[in-house]
Design a protein around this nucleic acid. Structure first.
Length: 889
RNA sequence: GCGAAAGUGGCGGAAUUGGUAGACGCACCGGCCUUAGAAGCCGGCGGGGUGACCCGUGCGAGUUCGAGUCUCGCCUUUCGCACCA
């Protein structure tokens, strides 16, 4: 056995061993329970960072520990290989996205391999392979048949930098989620998936049937789906003169959640894109100009929310459906075309936005809700909180509805509107259909052929996949497919006349909506086969919170579609979801004369402490002059604080890298990378090695003694206490494995090692070893190695072999999960904490068998307890068996 | 504005159902070893008096024999949503 811990050699040997055994390849078997744990698939940017390491190590610790517990575990890995960065790299480096992407995959894989993650690489998937996206296309055709996919032209979010359409979920604070560019509005044809058809079910499950999901993610999806319950009704109108955009006579429809305030309507506002606005603008140039202004105005939602309410009267009026009064129609910049009917009833007295609008344009404000408390009065001077509160009071100035509270009033109004045939109760969703057309090259081609006679015709199933030509190098001037005659040329599947192929590709979120099912059966010649039903639903999904409403909503929807098409048998893809925290790092800078910040690499900075360990500043190693602390930030190239796995593995080894990212903090929370912290973990592994080397010296005791079972009854007091500490710590570690709190698992391992080391030293010092003591030591070290193995598999594997456990029990990866021995936990004497009036006043040692009366007697006899009782009468004594006694005086 | 989560030593963080606050590690201080460094080992380490005590988990109240943990009200931070009618 080597004298010193050599991480590189140990890790190479362990990985060779695993590769030689093909140890992580799994098949579907019925004899053991299955467990499918998977990390969100990475984008092959070419760079692996410590955040990936943390993410995949969580996954790895979970699967390795479950395998020892008897599960058949699946942990696959793949590549989210389509997408824009490849095209941007192509423009910059003049290399085809396909070549760039495949080179990155190879590179990232080579960076991942040294980490020793137990992936079943035989199931690897790259979403840019035709064998994968074939099934994106196939399911798209099935969705067309089922009416779930459809084509329409509508106003969309246009990213001017990435030159493509974005789904609503991909617009964050009015900017493209990838490019950060301010999103514009454009009217473009494209394909949509009717996720709204599943709104009810998606909401129901996320609210009631996904207990294994973090509360936060469930709330975010709930809000995103956004169910609101109200009344949809129309204001009758009649237009004289020529009409093209809408019927001459009909209903101007609005949706409201506050039908109880319908008698307070003083205007109707429509969105700039509303048919009414379009029609009226034809004869009103001023209005046309205003509509144009609205369309090109700021679109960032946060911006729009705080933007001034602007509007313009159309001069046209509609009829109030209940009072028959004439109500003026306005165009308002605050009305959203995409929600409800694109028109709202204006009730300035009880809606803050309508109030602001009415104040600005001098529209009447009519109070129709009276506060419960008669002392609270209404005034049109300024908006007050309660005006818009459903629960604030009851109807007033509302004729027959006077005195009714919210719910009763809504019911009564809805009934009256229904009786007149102009309205009904309705549920509305905030969620909108998922637009999947992207005007980009590097994605799944949408399998459609456009024919002049037949229109948009689906590519027949037998002609799939529509293969994306891989040799184009985009130059930034739009989608190269538009210039690729060989790709464009097609024959109409219906009438056989010459036609053109669709050049839009699918949103890459399509790729990630079902890849986890393909992992189950990567070689299937159908989309999925029965193996998907074996592994799915996934038992544990691991990924970042940033996908809470994007990927995680799409994947749920996609799964339900596949279920309804009879492809799979489950309702939800992910039984449990774990959202891991980010890995952050400190950063340091110095302001240059120009005002620009110069960011230092961590290695270039020396942090100074005072004698109490407080940080007092930092200096540059190069010139010894101070640098500024830039805080703890997300790792980023621009701040030079990126920590690369390659470097860490080179310095400390993969086990240290893995163990440190686990130890740094609870996996669900963000953690900070620290070089000295990693060095501390490395010290622990070195100490583990040297301790094992000493225990290795007991080889003279012979196998039967080393691996014999421990005779609990024959242990000395010190040995019994030691054994107890190991089993208590083991119990703690197992509890933490189960709740995915791996930071304290590492702590537990450190505690065990400290205990083993201290025990070994004192036993040697007193030459107290005997065969039972050696067996005990071997038991302890075997527990430690098995507990630490999921976190640091290489060193533990090596030590397991060195100490002879492998020869006797087989490979560590399949060794029995250590069991807590209850008999080791038993004590003859226990320590009881004694409190007086809830304050800690002493500790007493009592026989384990002592009952309350006995403990009480000993406690009251205790000197310090006596002092605090001071002869005052003892009112009562609270006794928590085996733990604590509280004397109340 | 709405919603959610979180505030514990110099730092990362522990504390399972209310029951010994600060486990484990980092940093720092003292010592040993060494020609020296590295590595390693031993000890200390919330604050105040340095005695047997007192104070301490963002702030203020409450429930309880007992609160980091539960309840209410504030403050701060982070995240999500945001003219959704």
């Amino acid at each position: 056995m080597d004298e010193l811990y050599n991480a590189a050699a140990v890790e190479r040997a362990a990985q060779d061993h695993w590769t030689g055994r093909d140890a992580f390849r799994v098949t579907e078997e019925r004899t053991r329970p299955k467990f499918y744990a998977c990390s969100m698939l990475p984008y092959p940017s070419g760079k692996l960072h410590m955040g990936h390491v943390r993410n995949y190590t969580i996954n790895d610790v979970m699967t390795r520990s479950l395998r020892m517990q008897g599960y058949s575990v699946l942990m696959p890995m793949g590549w989210d290989a389509f997408g824009l960065p490849a095209e941007n790299a192509a423009i910059e480096k003049k290399i085809a996205p396909a070549a760039w992407t495949r080179a990155n995959i190879a590179d990232m894989k080579s960076q991942m391999k040294p980490l020793g993650l137990a992936f079943d690489w035989s199931r690897e998937i790259a979403t840019c392979d035709p064998s994968y996206y074939h099934w994106n296309q196939w399911l798209f055709l099935k969705m067309l048949e089922a009416g779930i996919a459809y084509r329409k032209t509508q106003v969309v979010n246009w990213d001017p930098v990435d030159q493509t359409v974005l789904a609503n979920e991909q617009v964050i604070d009015g900017r493209g989620w990838r490019s950060g560019a301010i999103v514009e509005k454009r009217e473009i044809p494209g394909y949509y998936l009717a996720i709204t058809k599943y709104a009810e079910e998606l909401l129901d499950y996320v609210q009631n049937k996904l207990p294994g999901w973090p509360h936060q993610v469930r709330t975010m999806q709930e809000n995103w789906i956004g169910r609101s319950y109200g009344v949809n009704f129309g204001f009758p109108y009649e237009i004289s003169g020529p009409v093209t955009d809408l019927p001459a006579k009909g209903l101007l429809r609005v949706f409201t959640t506050r039908a109880d305030t319908i008698m307070g309507v003083t205007f109707v506002a429509v969105a700039a894109e509303h048919a009414f606005a379009t029609h009226l603008a034809r004869s009103n140039p001023q209005l046309a100009a205003f509509i144009e202004e609205c369309k090109h105005g700021g679109v960032a939602e946060a911006e729009v929310a705080t933007m001034e309410k602007k509007g313009m009267a159309t001069g046209f009026s509609v009829t109030h459906p209940l009072t028959g009064a004439q109500v003026p129609v306005w165009v308002g910049n605050y009305v959203l075309m995409g929600y409800g009917e694109g028109a709202v009833m204006g009730v300035p007295a009880h809606d803050e936005r309508d109030f602001a609008f009415a104040k600005r344009y001098g529209l009447p404000i009519k109070q129709v809700i009276q506060h419960k408390d008669p002392k609270v009065t209404f005034s049109t001077d300024a908006w007050q909180e309660w005006y818009g509160d459903k629960e604030a009071g009851t109807c007033v100035n509302s004729g027959k509805y006077d005195g009714l509270a919210y719910e009763a009033a809504v019911d009564a109004v809805a009934a009256d509107l229904a009786a007149k045939g102009v309205g009904e109760k309705q549920v509305r969703w905030r969620l909108r259909d998922w637009g999947i057309s992207r005007q980009r090259y590097w994605g799944t081609p949408i399998p459609i052929i456009h024919c002049e006679k037949c229109g948009s015709v689906p590519v027949p199933e037998k002609d799939l996949p529509v293969v994306l030509p891989e040799d184009h190098v985009p130059d930034g001037s739009g989608n190269p497919l538009n210039k690729d005659e060989r790709f464009l040329a097609a024959t109409c599947p219906k009438c056989s006349s010459p036609a053109r192929r669709e050049t839009d590709t699918m949103d890459t979120f399509v790729d990630s909506s079902w890849y986890f099912m393909r992992y189950c059966c990567p070689d299937a010649n159908t989309m999925v086969d029965q193996r998907a039903d074996h592994w799915m639903p996934m038992d544990q999904y691991i990924g970042g919170i940033e996908h809470a409403v994007l990927h995680l909503l799409y994947a749920r929807f996609w799964t339900k579609v596949m279920r309804d098409l009879g492809l799979v048998k489950f309702d939800e893809p992910f039984t449990r979801l774990f959202t891991q925290g980010m890995l952050l790092a400190e950063c340091f800078y110095r302001e240059e004369e120009s005002g620009r910040k110069h960011w230092f690499y961590p290695a270039e900075v020396d942090v100074k402490h005072d004698e109490k360990g407080r940080i007092v500043g930092a200096v540059s190693v190069a010139d010894g002059k101070p640098v500024e602390f830039g805080g703890i930030e997300k790792m980023s190239k621009s701040k030079n604080n990126v920590v690369e796995p390659r470097d860490i593995i080179e310095r400390f080894g993969a086990d240290t890298a893995r163990a440190y990212v686990m130890f740094a903090g609870p996996p669900a929370e963000s953690a900070v990378w620290s070089d000295s912290g990693a060095a501390g973990v490395h010290r622990f592994l070195r100490k583990l090695w040297s301790t094992c080397r000493e225990i290795h010296g007991f080889a003279e005791y012979g196998e039967a003694q080393r691996f014999g079972s421990v005779d609990q009854a024959a242990l000395s007091a010190r040995q019994a206490a030691f054994r107890r500490s190991i089993h208590v710590t083991l119990r703690q570690a197992q509890y933490d494995f189960a709740r995915v709190q791996y930071n304290t698992v590492v702590s537990a391992c450190m505690i065990m090692l400290n205990a083993i080391d201290a025990h070994d030293k004192s036993e040697r010092a007193e030459k107290a070893f005997n065969a039972n003591g050696v067996a005990l030591l071997f038991e302890a070290i075997s527990i430690l190695l098995r507990t630490l193995y999921p976190v640091a598999p290489h060193i533990t594997h090596a030590l397991w072999v060195e100490l002879g456990f492998a020869a006797r029990y087989g490979d560590l990866m399949d060794a029995a999960w250590p069991a807590v021995d209850e008999s080791a936990l038993k004590q003859d004497e226990i320590q009881i904490v004694v409190q007086v009036n809830g304050k800690l006043r002493g500790r007493i040692t009592v026989p384990a068998s002592a009952d309350q009366a006995a403990v009480q007697a000993i406690a009251l006899a205790d000197e310090t307890v006596q002092k605090f009782v001071e002869g005052k009468p003892v009112r009562k004594v609270i006794y928590v068996p085996g733990k604590l006694a509280n004397v109340v005086v």
